[in-house]
Amino acid sequence: MKQDSAIRLILLGLAMSSVAALAVITLFIFREGLPIIFRQGPGSFLFGSDWDPGAEPAAFGIFAMIAGTFAVTGGALLLGVPVGLGSAIFLSEFAPRKVATILKPALELLAGIPSVVFGYIGMLVLSPFIRDHIGGSGASVLAGSAILGIMILPTIISISMDTLRSVPRSYREGSFALGATGWQTTWKVTLPAARSGLVAAVILGMGRAVGETMAVIMVTGNTALVPKSPLSPARTLTANIAMQLNAAVGEHREALFACGVVLFVIIMVLNTFANWVAKLGKRA
């Protein structure tokens, strides 16, 4: 029995690795990024509209990047949510079993395609298309939203499908017994029963869009100005970090870590909210 408790202790140590990793990551990002936020004042850092690390004195206001992040993410949700939920509903409620068992893993393959490949397609196909047929320079919020909209599909589809499948069969049978059609059953019974899980799926998809880096850098033009229309270029928080980290020293590097802090907080709030909504549904 002595051996048993020793093994238990070792395994507990291993199991703490992810908690420890999370703690160290949080600690280092905040340690590098927080000082400049407080030195400059959170208000002027978050809502300052001027980002110019080369100027004398340097200006570090990230409002344009926050606006860029939310503009691109919002657009991605407009595209990704209807397509993602639609596919999930189709695959879990209406598709023949064989079709669903082939298509679900196929759609999850989308998640495996590297984001640089998505970015390349955006750069070579989507941006020129927007420039020639819609307007602007092509490198735009619209291009970023379209690419991210596709990239968040696997997240939304696979979580929504799991939620829809966990709705008890008897709910649907009850509805059919009352003479409802398949769609009436889905709309009035299955979807309301799965509501909280579906909301969680959308929020997690949003988290993916906010955190995506490489694909966005390649298609949005990266101008550090608040975007005025879907055809304007934009720079996201992630792009700001990735484009400048290699060349940054001193205050500039601190400011990039501060962007990391803001990004980290946004993601944690989204994930915690998604978790909370999902739990709410399980209790009801």
Partner: peptide, 19 residues
């Protein structure tokens, strides 16, 4: 432990890069 793993799964790769 589960909370730690879930949070880690949600962290964007650029944050891992920074860290």
């Amino acid at each position: 432990i589960r909370y730690g793993a879930d949070c880690l799964a949600g962290i964007p790769s650029i944050i891992f890069g920074l860290f």
